[in-house]
């Protein structure tokens, strides 16, 4: 793509052109030519949306909950962007992106933009592209961005460092696993959602979760995670409940961030994470580009294969040659 096409693309995107938003995301997601230029131009227009992360085990009801939250935010007059992340197959690189099925009622709503993406190889975490995509949607201009990711509560969940408010969704059936996860959850979750509260065991589980929160060593003045029940599907619409309270709690948490000046800390964390990811990929690009055509990469790999060298020493050598001594060179 020509550089002036990129300018045009970004201009339209900032103007609220939805098709251009979709195309820009693809360009950046695939690391196509011009993606750095896009991000440079987009960046000054970011940082204004409230970002809500929704994570939890497979089938917990994250997408169903997201669907209801979108509707509620829309009723409040807010525009919403949604990023649905599903895991890529580690073997084939392919992915089945099935979350959108649960969000059909918003298909024609111009105030809602939904994008499904594959995690592309980052376990439990988010790729650089995911953060870039969130930035792009921010620049397009929405009030709220919801990010759904898979997470079991045990592994590192990147969205925590990125979202203003992080919801972890549980279901009654998961009671047995809770013991092992307790510590982790309290670190991750601002709101602990007990979804499928219509099912047996929900009350006991909620009591356990609340007990865990009370027993936790939460520092004075820090946010105390809230435990909230939720029912997202039922034959009787009147039985669907809990989501108004969730929205209320999201805003309460956001207000808390404001008051406690944590918003700046989140901005800082977010940038720290992004800088690390960008540095990683750019450095790798740069170095592989530098090695291209020299035959060195092959030589290094063969040396490791032959037992004469190891990956850490090789990387050290490459860094010494290409990066650390650059100043003197």
């Amino acid at each position: 793509m020509m550089e002036n096409n990129i300018d045009e693309m970004v201009r339209k995107l900032l103007d609220g052109d939805r098709r251009m938003l979709a195309r820009t995301i693809t360009l950046v997601e695939n690391g196509r030519k011009g993606h750095r230029n896009v991000m440079r131009q987009v960046y000054p227009h970011t940082g204004k949306a409230m970002i809500v992360g929704i994570t939890g085990a497979g089938g917990a009801g994250k997408s169903t909950l997201t669907d209801i939250l979108i509707a509620k935010f829309r009723k409040m007059g807010k525009t919403v962007g949604v990023v649905l992340v599903d895991p890529s197959s580690p073997f084939t690189g392919g992915a089945m992106l099935g979350d959108r099925i649960r969000m059909k009622k918003h298909a024609q709503d111009k105030g809602v933009y939904i994008r499904s993406i594959a995690s592309r190889g980052t376990m439990g975490g988010l790729s650089r592209a995911t953060y870039d995509i969130i930035r792009i949607i921010e620049a397009f201009g929405v009030d709220i961005i919801i990010v759904e990711t898979l997470g079991t509560g045990q592994d590192e969940i990147d969205i925590v460092h990125f979202a203003h408010t992080c919801l972890v969704v549980f279901t009654p059936g998961m009671g047995d696993d809770i013991q092992a996860m307790k510590a982790g959850i309290l670190e991750i979750a601002d709101l602990i959602i007990m979804n499928k509260a219509d099912l047996e065991g929900a009350e006991t589980f909620i009591r356990h979760l609340k007990g865990a929160v009370t027993a936790a060593d939460i520092p004075e003045g820090a946010w105390v995670p809230k435990v909230l029940p939720s029912i997202c599907v039922s034959d009787k619409p009147a039985n669907i409940k809990g989501q108004d309270e969730i929205i209320e709690a999201i805003y309460e948490h956001f207000a808390f961030l404001h008051k406690s000046k944590s918003l700046d800390a989140i901005k800082f964390q977010r940038l720290e994470l992004e800088l690390g990811l960008i540095l990683n990929s750019e450095l790798q690009n740069l170095i592989f580009k530098g090695l291209k055509g020299t035959g060195l990469k092959k030589k290094y790999i063969n040396a490791i294969l032959g037992g004469e060298n190891d990956p850490y020493s090789v990387v050290r050598e490459i860094l010494d040659t290409y990066v650390l001594h650059r100043k003197d060179a």
Partner: peptide, 29 residues
Amino acid sequence: LLKEAGMEVVYLGMFNQVEDIVQAVVDED
């Protein structure tokens, strides 16, 4: 099968309106 072939596949399920399907194609690019 498409996933196994390395593609990223958005599945929209059943009973979709024409406009909704096409809008999904636009938004997902």
